[in-house]
Design a protein around this nucleic acid. Structure first.
Lengths: 414, 414
DNA sequence: CCAGTTTTTTTCGAGACCCGGAATAAATAA
DNA sequence: TTATTTATTCCGGGTCTCGAAAAAAACTGG
């Protein structure tokens, strides 16, 4: 049941909109902001004066007088880097990394650590996360007046409220409320995000032209994950982070998947699936970890000669193609970004993928569907987390009067 | 790029909210409205006074003084039936039906017609629609001061802007901009809706408890269609009405589908698919029309004895189950309503469906997924159209200041 | 170099809206 | 009849946005 707009909401929303406009565009002038938001010049003037007073925005120095135009030169507004700080925590297989980011989005400190996530106890895993955050918070080199928000990303399924990890391939433990743990420990609002969703968020900030309102980010790694932006909003399931593209059914009762079921897309296109097909181990072979280096060797072998390696990539392409076809039947085609180590082998995957997709209802214009590749997922995930945390700060801290707690409240704007 | 909230938007939105509150609840008092919208009593009082002045709302007579409570009795507000009129046009296989609905949602006139949609020329089909609308508009018995909006529903794919039918199984013609045709002809705003989406809208109005924020309506008829509500909003594709559940891939290179491709869910669960399996005609048999009566006979045969009929329903259940499993992998499980003639045979479908869904990632709690059945789709579609048209009137006509044109503007609130 | 032109930004007054609290209205209970 | 309770309206105050006008800050050109 949607709620009425109270009078004081008005200013709050318009403030948030101004901040968002400044974050989106490099150095917008007040006039530009007025144009994009549709508000009057006077309003923008008043709001930006407030924001500058509060130290959230700053006028940029007229260092570039390359105006060339006639009238009064417009003065650009920028985010004040010192207005706030956020922290990102990315937890992936055997790897934990945190970064401290200033309000303008620059990394000001980071730390990375290898650990054995698969065998660690639940408490040890949580403990490592808490410890690494604490080390960054207490770093004497840094004058962190206060971290305003922490965004964690993990490979796996998270809940809709962005509080907890429900299930993850990197650890045998389930239902860990990381967000609550960090909030209780440090008193800083935190959210728990899905890695592929963060990839999608990052892609949108990196290239808003290509990744605007509707697009798909697919992680081709050990498992297959997806982040989906529809109508400008990050898509999530009704209870969980959803978008488990890798576990759509490709062939009923087909190959054994890491999730224990059969016939999932991942059971044909995940690293372990490509590996066992290339080694002709059979579709029921127990999923094993394959290093990125091994996958790269596999890909070059497949490029060199026609053999089981090439066939394995073909099968992966087929599974991805039919899966995408089914997805497109539901949401219509959209630009796709392939991310992760197997994205570097997309040349081996693409032919079979396109052939499969052309046989589906969603693939009617399969020629026009465009794919982009990005072999390295980690930087994307970190960037996405940073933007997500900063966006929360924009909306909640600097546009006061709204209840905190992420997820439901914050309308998943990517 | 979202736009700022201007000062005059505020009243407009809050007016729309009050109207929505009155439409949702039977006879809410001003106090109740204040509670549900979160606005103050004074504001609600002012807005409702305006709306009553304008003839949009009306105070209900205190015909039921069954107050039982102590203080001043609350006076209920209701929609003034004469405030406006809308028209629904439902176009299905060989059948055209229109209804005139008052502002309170009561049918005040209707007309139905059989026609041979499959063989009609494009112009004849459009002509019939225009003619039947014209007859209702010019009906001398009716004092229609003006129809404020027309909602058309058609079986098939429509575009995101709700202007045109892109493809439909009921006619060989494609890309008919019905909404534009009617707007040009009568000067009344019109939208073109997908039949299954309207089913979902209607279900939500009929039973808001069960069908609240997330649910699925599946049409089991000649073809398989779906209407999907996620997070309280009607789901649509990026370009088309989307949600083509029937054309998700069940078995790559499997049975021949009406759409010309192979292995779609519909090729196992559509009426024609069940029919050809029951008759053991093979999966490549050309799809044929099967009457509802014939399907009912088939279902009772399947109930009586174990044979190809029962096996056909089992296969349908399996396809629907794996399809739902894939869908649930993407959106998480949600309540499902099965609508249409084969919903009456859901007892034959359900066992295989549940078995299949249990083998998928989305079906983890398959026991708890609840199915409801409704054998008759037409009344649902009509109701959905009526509510859709009325909601548009609520938002656009009576809360002025917003650009007309449906689709994009009107945020698909179900 | 200074007045005119152009463009951006700020200022100011007016109007609209919402809110809280007080006042009023309309019923029941005693 | 009076007290009590609940619903609705009225009123004063505060805040917001807007449009128009003024001010600011450049450039242009004689």
């Amino acid at each position: 049941m949607s709620v009425g707009i109270r009078h004081d909401d008005l200013r709050r929303r318009n403030r948030a909109m101004v901040i968002a406009a400044v974050r989106r565009t490099p150095q917008p002038s007040r006039t530009e902001i007025a144009a994009t938001t549709g508000l009057s010049h006077s309003t923008i003037s008043a709001i930006s004066a407030d924001l500058i007073d509060e130290g959230i925005l700053a006028e940029s120095k007229p260092n570039e007088p390359a105006s060339l135009k006639r009238g009064r030169p417009q003065v650009g507004l920028g985010l004040n880097p010192e207005a706030a700080t956020v922290m990102t925590v990315v937890l992936s297989l055997n790897f934990l990394s945190v970064a401290v980011i200033d309000y303008a989005g620059q990394v000001i400190a980071e730390e990375q650590r290898r650990l054995d996530t698969l065998t660690m106890s639940r408490d040890a895993l949580i403990g490592e996360c808490v410890a690494i955050v604490r080390r960054r918070l207490e770093d004497p080199d840094l004058d962190i007046r206060g971290v305003a928000r922490i965004a964690l990303a993990i490979q796996g399924i998270t809940d809709t409220d962005a509080r907890a990890m429900l299930w993850s391939p990197i650890t045998p433990h389930t239902d860990i409320a990381f967000a609550d743990v960090l909030e209780d420990e440090f008193g800083i609002p935190a959210t728990m995000e899905n890695d592929c969703n963060m990839m999608a968020v990052a892609l949108r900030w990196r290239d808003p032209r290509r990744y605007r309102d509707d697009f798909i980010a697919i992680l081709l790694s050990h498992g297959i994950g997806m982040g989906l932006v529809l109508k400008g909003e990050l898509f999530s399931g009704t209870h969980s982070s959803g978008g488990e593209f890798g576990h759509m059914i490709h062939r009923p009762n087909g190959a054994l998947c890491r999730c224990g079921r059969r016939g999932c897309v991942e059971a044909y296109a995940g690293n372990y699936a490509i590996w066992r097909n290339a080694r002709e181990m059979g579709e029921d072979a127990e999923p094993v970890d394959v290093s990125d280096a091994e996958m790269r060797v596999l890909a070059s072998t497949a490029r060199e000669r026609d053999g089981p390696e090439r066939e394995a990539y073909r099968k992966a392409g087929e599974a991805l193609g039919f899966g995408l076809g089914s997805l497109f039947a539901l949401i219509d085609p959209a630009p796709v970004a392939m991310v992760g180590v197997s994205a570097a082998a997309f040349d081996l995957i693409e032919p079979a993928l396109r052939e499969a997709i052309a046989q589906t209802a969603g693939g009617q214009h399969s020629k026009s569907i465009s794919f982009d590749t990005e072999p390295n997922e980690l930087p994307l995930i970190r960037e996405g987390c940073a933007m997500r945390a900063l966006t929360f700060v924009d909306q909640q801290i600097f546009a006061p009067g709204v209840q905190a707690r992420a997820g439901a409240a914050g309308k998943n704007v990517a």
